[in-house]
Every structure is written in C-alpha cells, then in structure tokens.
Simulated scan of single mutants.
Amino acid sequence: MKIEVACKETDSTKAKGDLLENLANDLLIAQGYEVIEEIRITGAELDLLCKHRVSGKTIYVECKAQKEKISAPILRQLLGTVIAYDYAEGWLISTAELGKEAKGFAEQWREKNQNLGSKLSFYTPKLVIDSL
C-alpha cells in the first residue's frame, strides 16, 4: 500500500512534509492529544510533540513524506530522541513502507518487554489509513 502527498511539482520537500504533519496533527487531536508543531530543542528539531489531554503522556512524532522505503537509521534516530528527552513514546508516521533493515528493527523491537516495546509505534501507510 502506498500514500502519496499531492502537491505542486514546484513545492519543496518541506511543503510535502508539512502536509503529512497536518494529517498527523488531525489524527492525534482525534486521539486526545494536544499538538505542538515543529519545535526546536537542544540537539534536535521535532516534527510534532504531543501531550495527551487525559493521561498527560508526552509523545514525539516523526513524519516522513517520502517515496523511498524507510531506512533503519530513521528508526534508531526516533528511539534515540525518545530516550534522550525521556518521552513516553515515539511514533513514526510515514507515506512509505519500512525497508528490509527497518522491518527487522521493528520486529525485534516489538519483541521487547511490554514497557520497552510499547515506546515505539510505526505507522506505515496501511496503519495510517486504518487509523483514519
């Protein structure tokens, strides 16, 4: 399954990313999160930082609007940001499927104990569509 971000040919990759971030924003608001868009913290630029209105849980969401498959370093960077800034969870919302190495990373990650394994969620195209 594939999701394509439709915009003008002359639009930058930033514009395409902004469209996906807006979609993710709507999805997160529907799930009870307050969303802070594009914030800069020491050592990182975050796509979306969200706080759940009821639980107070803070999550970091990385949005990737790209055609090529998601690579494993993107998932490791997501994990590093979640751990470094002590966020409850990290989500990847992507228009592309996971590449071979990234799939392996995701499968190994899901096998971690319940507390650790639930810290990362990978929303590939089918999961994004199912969530909407």
Rank of each mutant, 00 (worst) to 15 (best):
C50A: 12
K8R: 12
L78W: 00
Y87I: 02
S121K: 13
E34V: 14
R53K: 15
Q114K: 10
K16I: 06
C50E: 07
N115S: 15
S55M: 00
E37M: 03
K14S: 15
K112Y: 12
R53Y: 02
N22I: 11
Q66V: 14
Q66H: 08
L48G: 05
A84H: 09
E101L: 07
L19S: 08
E38P: 03
F105W: 14
A15N: 02
F105C: 05
E37Y: 00
G17H: 01
T13S: 14
A84V: 03
N22R: 08
A15H: 01
Y87Q: 03
A65R: 02
L92Y: 00
G80E: 08
E45K: 07
K57Q: 14
G104A: 11
I29W: 01
D26K: 13
I74R: 04
I36C: 08
G17R: 02
T81M: 05
V35M: 05
S12Q: 08
A106I: 08
L79R: 10
K8I: 02
A72V: 14
E62W: 01
H52M: 04
A65E: 01
A15I: 10
F122D: 06
L92C: 04
T124L: 06
E111K: 12
V5P: 07
D11V: 09
K16C: 09
E68M: 01
Q66F: 01
W109V: 05
K51D: 00
I59R: 04
I59A: 04
V54G: 08
A15K: 04
Q66K: 15
K69I: 02
L92V: 10
Y85T: 00
E21M: 11
M1N: 12
K100I: 04
E21F: 08
E45P: 02
A96T: 03
D86N: 15
M1E: 13
L79C: 11
I41N: 11
L49A: 11
G117D: 04
G99I: 05
E107S: 11
G43P: 06
K2P: 01
E9G: 15
D26M: 14
Y87A: 07
V82Y: 03
